[in-house]
């Protein structure tokens, strides 16, 4: 069974339940995907499939990848990602179609994407340093402070938190609840936010460490005296 899907982030909105509770929701346009390659334990050492995101605009491929897609018997796709295959269900074959009906309402998923790039940022924004006072004669505002001792060790230890490039990294948001699956429009609504900006590419997979789904506790009246 294929455990994931490629999609694009559309944007955020909110969903009401019948009792007026509002859930923040991210809309993802997920799939449809085609299986471009099947990786097996014998050939590759692990079980996975390479999925291609089917998009309206066909891509121009070089000779090497044209051959790769020809082998699978699928049209070339611009975006390709690999997802693991879980035991159970029918084993995937090259050329298979995968879509959002893979997921069900209320299920937990992980969403993997590339976070928005923030450029070169200081330690206050990048590492949540507290910084100093802005006023009252303070001359220490947003500087990092001491980065180590002097003659010993005479160097800065590795991994010291400093300013630098922030964002534009691969981020996994785990255990997001699926609020709605719209197979007709290939849409998936998950609770909360996902990394990246609108139109960025994300991989949605079944949660690898799924939290149990909380069921609202019904209050029962206690017997006895008040």
């Amino acid at each position: 069974m294929v455990t994931g899907l490629i999609g694009r982030k559309v944007g955020m909105t909110q969903l009401f339940t019948a009792d007026g509770t509002v859930f923040p929701a991210t809309v993802l346009k997920a799939g449809p995907c085609v299986v471009a390659q099947v990786k097996t334990v014998d050939g590759d050492g692990y079980e996975a499939v390479q999925l291609g995101l089917v998009e309206a605009k066909p891509t121009k491929e070089n000779k090497a990848s044209t051959g790769h897609f020809k082998k699978a018997g699928v049209p070339p796709t611009r975006v390709r990602r690999e997802v693991r295959v879980r035991a159970g269900g029918d084993s995937p074959k090259a050329g298979d179609q995968v879509n959002v009906s893979l997921f069900a309402d209320g299920e937990r998923v992980d969403v993997i994407g590339t976070s928005r790039g923030k450029g070169f940022q200081g330690v206050v924004k990048r590492h949540h340093f507290a910084g100093g006072r802005m006023s009252h004669g303070s001359m220490f505002h947003r500087a990092p402070g001491s980065i180590g001792a002097s003659s010993f060790p005479s160097r800065v230890v590795k991994g010291m938190r400093m300013g630098g490039h922030m964002g534009d990294t691969r981020i996994t948001t785990r255990n997001l609840k699926v609020l709605r699956v719209d197979a007709e429009n290939n849409l998936l609504l998950v609770e909360g936010s996902v990394p990246g900006g609108p139109n960025s590419i994300v991989v949605i997979r079944k949660a690898i460490a799924a939290k149990p789904i909380r069921v609202a506790q019904v209050e029962t009246k206690k017997k006895g005296k008040k």
């Binding site: 944007g11 955020m12 909105t13 346009k29 719209d182």
Partner: peptide
């Protein structure tokens, strides 16, 4: 907003 978000929201109006 995008047309897709409108589509999702339409059912709730």
């Amino acid at each position: 907003m995008s047309a897709i978000v409108d589509l999702v929201e339409r059912g709730q109006l």
